[in-house]
Design a binder for these strands. Structure first.
Lengths: 228, 228
DNA sequence: TGACAAGGTGTAGCATCGACACTATCTTTC
DNA sequence: GAAAGATAGTGTCGATGCTACACCTTGTCA
């Protein structure tokens, strides 16, 4: 909470600007979203997206990255602007324009979220079992999910959910969680390998009482490319 | 220009919020964009996108629609949010967040743009011959064009450029201007007709010393659908 | 060493996309 | 009214990509 030392005046009214971030990851094979329980009114006690007010000398992207880092401790993850919500009465306190982003966190970064100062609790929720949300945040999450699913089809965005190395079965599991449907193993592997986006590490990975899987890494882990 | 009668104060600094609109149409077979010559500093005399400050009790979409109507006199045209630009020093006067939109105007609405109070001139410019632009507006136009071209592929957005009735050749010309490449007539007609999105009016249209073309109308002129 | 569990592999039918050239119909001119 | 000029309108074939589908492999563990 900022402690105002002075006031800032303008010749005509200005809205407040916030960024809110839909943070996605895959937990135990389920698409999940990070939510914050609101400690203060309005909507006290309800779940909401992590976010907060834009600093006056801070770029929009930097604000979203800062909010994300404050809640998850993570930096350098995939972050993309989603949409700007600005209905006149979406926040009862004052006029608030929310520039929303979505972020993708690799499966393994089991970052235990830390409760920030203005949040009573921070927790991951399975996407298919979200609690009621404050403000218009349900609408924001729905839009983020639609964007994500659409991008699966024509970009390499799914790799942003993968740790440095992974197996083809793990990657397929990510696609299946996002699309919410089973995929054919042979067709999936054929398509992914034909894209020339991953390389074998030469190692293999044992994850149970069965044959180990080949380990792969993304050839361009830090870029999301448009394909087809 | 608003005449401030009072001042508005906040406990911490607020940015200003504007909407800017990239208005596209097809003029003489060329994709064109509406620009305003700035009458006041900063960037006085340079060309810029039509746009302006958000009223405090006005929805974002309504603000964009209002700016569009003020410059073109048109209402009810296709208008979609594009992206929000908020780099810290994009406007030298104060911190300004610009929520940008793009609008598509049918070919025939040869709305002579009217110079608004704060614009020395308003004019259509061919997209492939744009003048230097104020602020970060070139970046905005470039992004709008990319979005438009991408949507051609997987939505029925092209129909937003068409008047109530049109011929297949006219429609093909729109696709060719947007994609900046010639298309095969037979393949184009086959694809469009197979989508079941247009219907013959039964009339034909004569546009020169040659065989008249069949006239069509869009079956759902007011909606943009996702196809494929 | 046998049961179990996931890893890994190929083919054939079908639909879709792109390349490609000629006839039809109307206007204008001679 | 005949011929020239201009755009409208039409079908096929080959290549490519997508979908459906079943079995053997290789490791662990009891």
């Amino acid at each position: 909470m900022r402690i105002p030392k002075e006031t800032f005046s303008y010749p005509y009214p200005h809205p407040a600007v916030t960024t809110d971030v839909v943070v996605f990851t895959i937990i135990a094979g389920r698409l999940s979203t990070l939510l914050v329980r609101r400690a203060n009114p309005p909507h006290q006690g309800e779940w909401a997206l992590p976010g907060g007010f834009l600093d006056i000398d801070e770029d929009l992207d930097a604000c979203a990255a800062r909010e994300l880092a404050e809640e998850t401790g993570l930096r350098g993850v995939y972050l993309e602007q989603l949409y700007t919500f600005g209905a006149t009465h979406r926040d009862p306190r004052e006029r608030v324009i929310s520039v929303t982003y979505y972020a993708l966190i690799p499966q393994d970064s089991l970052a235990t979220p830390r409760a920030a100062s203005d949040a009573a609790a921070v927790a991951w929720h399975a996407f298919d079992a979200l609690p009621p949300l404050a403000f218009d945040h349900e609408q924001i999450i729905t839009m983020a999910h639609r964007r994500l699913v659409a991008k699966l089809d024509y970009s390499t965005i799914a790799f942003q959910f993968m740790p440095e190395t992974f197996t083809l079965s793990e990657l397929q599991c990510v696609y299946e969680s996002l699309l919410n449907q089973k995929l054919d193993k042979r067709n999936f592997r054929k398509r992914i390998l034909s894209l020339d986006l991953i390389a074998e590490t030469g190692r293999s990975r044992r994850t149970g009482n069965h044959r180990p899987a080949r380990e792969y890494r993304a050839k361009h882990p830090n870029t999301v490319e448009i394909i087809k």
